[in-house]
């Protein structure tokens, strides 16, 4: 069993690399929706799986959420990206995308997938470029619609016990849109990431 730790220096470095990556994703989202995005401050942790739900501060009070999940891998680093929307966000999201009509579950799913493609792709690419790796992404799939956070996390089938987590709580200015992009890395990835980042830390 690995007892790898996340020391303050490495955590700080992850946070800054994530900051640059989320900035690119925020820029794309702002262009798509024509709405200013309030940049999230990345929250980096090394957690037990059981602690994950408590760590999701940004959407913790949402009674009903929807989420997609997408795996990624490259340079012996493996992880999953989860995009979790507070269901209360969809009304405003539909308005911002000029959608007129009834917001059905199908429409919500399309919005969720569209935003996931933009945010997850840009974030992973931004992160990867800075540490000189490249990730290939699997197909995104729906984890669930209109369920609570506990149930959502239970549906995420991966069995990793400890995870490096980067939480990116996005908000749209003047809108009731709350979404949380969560990057989860396997514990084994941590040593490789540390290695890739060593030239930055020195």
């Amino acid at each position: 069993m690995s007892t790898d730790v996340l020391d303050e220096e490495l955590r700080d470095c992850f946070q800054e690399l994530s900051n640059v990556a989320v900035g690119r994703a925020a820029d794309l989202l702002a262009r798509l929706l024509n709405n200013f995005v309030i940049m999230p401050i990345p929250v980096v942790n090394l957690l037990e799986r059981a602690e994950l739900s408590m760590a999701l501060s940004a959407i913790a009070d949402a009674s009903s959420v929807s989420a997609v999940c997408q795996g990624f891998t490259g340079s012996k680093i493996a992880g999953e990206a989860l995009l979790i929307f507070n269901d209360a966000s969809f009304q405003d999201m539909a308005e911002l995308t000029q959608f007129k009509g009834e917001i059905t579950e199908q429409i919500e799913l399309e919005l969720l997938m569209d935003i996931a493609n933009i945010l997850i792709g840009a974030c992973l690419k931004g992160l990867a470029e800075q540490i000189d790796v490249s990730f290939s992404q699997g197909q995104p799939y729906l984890l669930g619609q209109h369920i609570n956070i506990e149930e959502l996390l239970n549906r995420n089938g991966s069995t990793w016990q400890r995870l490096l987590t980067i939480e990116l709580p996005y908000k749209l200015e003047g809108r009731e849109v709350n979404c949380d992009l969560l990057l989860l890395f396997t514990e084994d990835s941590l040593a490789i990431l540390r290695n890739k980042m060593s030239y930055l830390l020195e």
């Binding site: 900051n19 640059v20 989320v22 900035g23 925020a26 820029d27 702002a30 200013f36 995005v37 940049m39």
Partner: peptide, 9 residues
């Protein structure tokens, strides 16, 4: 000096 590269920022 910022990572927030939105033109609006």
């Amino acid at each position: 000096i910022s990572g927030d590269i939105q033109p609006e920022a």
